[in-house]
Design a protein around this nucleic acid. Structure first.
Lengths: 204, 204
DNA sequence: TGGGCATCGTGATTCGTTTCACAAGCGCAC
DNA sequence: GTGCGCTTGTGAAACGAATCACGATGCCCA
């Protein structure tokens, strides 16, 4: 499946949920409008799912949701860990959408001894030693990294060494990882700078 | 300038800062290695800056930084507002990198009266009325949206109506905006779901 | 039961981006 | 000075993705 398609599937899922119960069926055109893409593009994307829409009618909303979830590997909940419970880590820990999205935060971890034991959204912050043990015990494969930039590489190395295979990195640092590990980078400064470019190059 | 190039410029800037003072000059190859892209790609990207590297030597590190900043429109600091001071908004308000990246948070705003007046990272949380006034007064063009999903569209409409032209949206909601307004979406669930796809489709 | 309408699925085309490959240019050493 | 090694800048080729265009197909209603 093309990379570009994979990156749109979550969008479709979100759009379908936004459309809600009112419609039992959705056309590629309707979905395209909500998602802001071309309808042929939607159809091509969905065709990778082996999805069978009905000509003249569209796609069954619920079935399409199910197919998207299946394609994205969201049939079971993925256990994830959050490493680094600063402001951002706390914010993510409080995020209520994990469950609905197919994930389950099994623990929060921090290197700072003074934070350990504190509670965030009902979960007790645990130590880095616990992190290693928990990852192995629960066979966790996905981690969210919200440490300071300086600590990110070191923590990432440790995560990889105990079996983590996917990292969502919020630390403003470029991680050097083995290419068996998939990483996605979310960077506030980068996003703002991209906006800045378009802002600056507006025809005034 | 190609979209793909624009989205890499901040990355180069970050890499150059990571390389630090040790080197006065950088080759496209060195930069490519750190950034994780092809060196021909780096050269082509930089050629859009009208940059003049020196054959046999490379690019002057500081000059290249300056050129990148100029191209990205980071010569002056952009004033930005943060709207919605929940966990995520607070986290962003505490982010120390704004200054270095070329931005200046001029205010934090929330619709919840009980939050108004509280301080986050030294800034007083202000009301939505103040938000409108401040945007007009300081001619703010960029906003960071960290409200709950339900309020995002309404707030965005207001922002647009008072002159905001770029929105960085962290709310898990798809904004309907006039196409004069540039928006970038950052969505935790989406990112995790993309990772989930690759995780699920690994050859076990 | 048949005709018309709506919509899908997909080959062909276009577009944008990445990569390759190499000539041109600069600097250093001898 | 002259030659050699390194690195840029860029045309050409390869690749991947978006869009177009249309045949195929199912549904609804007369």
């Amino acid at each position: 499946m093309p990379k570009a398609t994979v990156e749109r599937l979550p969008l479709y899922l979100q759009c379908l949920q936004a459309i809600g119960d009112s419609e039992t069926t959705v056309s590629s055109d309707a979905l395209a409008n909500v998602a802001g893409v071309n309808s042929a593009n939607v159809r091509k994307d969905l065709s990778y799912l082996g999805s069978h829409g009905v000509r003249g009618v569209g796609y069954d909303r619920l079935e399409l949701c199910a197919q998207l979830r299946r394609a994205l590997g969201l049939t079971d909940k993925w256990p994830v860990v959050i490493v680094g419970v600063g402001n951002l880590g706390s914010a993510l820990a409080n995020y209520q959408g994990f469950d609905a999205s197919g994930f389950n935060v099994i623990g929060l971890y921090d290197a700072d001894p003074s934070k350990i034991g504190a509670r965030v959204d009902g979960q007790r912050i645990k130590s880095m030693e616990d992190l290693e043990l928990d990852i192995k015990k629960h066979e966790v494969q996905m981690a969210i990294l919200t440490t300071p930039a300086g600590a990110a590489q070191e923590v990432a190395d440790m995560l990889v060494s105990v079996g983590i295979l996917s990292i969502l990195n919020f630390a403003p640092a470029l991680l050097k990882l083995p290419d068996t590990v998939k990483c996605r980078q979310v960077d506030l400064a980068t996003e703002l700078q991209i906006l800045s470019y378009y802002q600056a190059s507006r025809p005034t």
